[in-house]
Computed example of a mutant assay.
Amino acid sequence: MNTTHKTGNKTHSVVFTILLHILVVIFFLAGLRVYGQVNEPKIEFVLNPTYPHAYEFTSVTIRSFSFDTQSALFSWSINGKPASTGRGVKSASFTTGPLGSKTAVSVIIVPFEGMKIKKTIDVYASDLDILWTASSYTPPFYRGKSLPTRGSTVTFVASPFFESAQTGKETDFLFEWNVDGKEMRQQSGYGARVFSLNIGRNSNTEYRIQARVTNPATNATQTKSFSLPIYDPALLFYELHPLQGPLTGRAISDRRAIAPDSEIQVLAVPYYASQPPAALDFGWKVENTDIARGEKGERADVLTYHAEQGSRGQQIVSLSILNPFNILERIQESFRIYVE
Rank of each mutant, 00 (worst) to 15 (best):
T153M: 10
I258P: 04
S136F: 06
V25N: 07
Q70I: 07
S203L: 03
Q186T: 15
I22Q: 06
E170M: 07
R212Q: 09
G313I: 10
D180P: 01
G88I: 07
R193D: 12
R87L: 07
N215D: 14
Y190L: 04
G114W: 12
D129G: 01
D301S: 13
Q315E: 11
N2H: 06
K102Q: 12
W177H: 07
S334I: 01
A30D: 05
A300E: 11
S106H: 09
K102T: 10
E340D: 11
S136K: 03
D290R: 07
G297R: 12
I62T: 04
Q265P: 00
A268L: 05
Q222F: 13
F112C: 00
I26V: 15
D254H: 09
M184G: 04
V89Y: 06
N9D: 08
F325N: 14
G283E: 13
S146M: 11
S126P: 01
I252Y: 08
F161D: 07
P111F: 03
E56A: 12
A234N: 10
V60N: 04
V123T: 02
G189I: 08
Y238H: 02
P148Q: 09
H306W: 10
S101Q: 05
T3S: 14
P276R: 01
S311L: 03
L228E: 09
V107C: 15
K224G: 00
T4N: 13
K6S: 13
A54I: 04
K42N: 13
K285Q: 14
A292R: 14
E163K: 11
K296W: 05
G189H: 05
L319F: 03
W177F: 04
A300Q: 14
D172I: 02
E44L: 03
R208C: 00
T153E: 11
E56Q: 15
G297K: 09
T11I: 15
N39G: 00
S274G: 08
S126E: 03
L236V: 08
K296V: 03
V46D: 00
I321R: 00
P229C: 12
T214S: 08
T149G: 07
K116R: 15
V38N: 02
N326M: 04
V154W: 01
E308N: 13
L47E: 06
T248L: 05
A104H: 07
S227E: 14
R312N: 05
M115C: 03
W177L: 08
S84R: 15
G313Y: 06
R33D: 09
K90H: 14
I321Y: 02
Y207H: 15
P139R: 09
S188A: 05
F94N: 03
T11K: 11
K145R: 12
Y124M: 05
R256G: 00
V46H: 00
E329Q: 13
Y142K: 02
E40H: 02
I199H: 09
T214Q: 10
Y35F: 13
T218H: 02
S320P: 00
V194D: 13
L19F: 15
L73R: 10
I209S: 00
D290V: 11
P242G: 09
G249Q: 10
L303T: 06
Y272H: 14
T221Q: 11
L197S: 10
Y231I: 05
L243Q: 08
N48T: 15
V266I: 15
R250D: 07
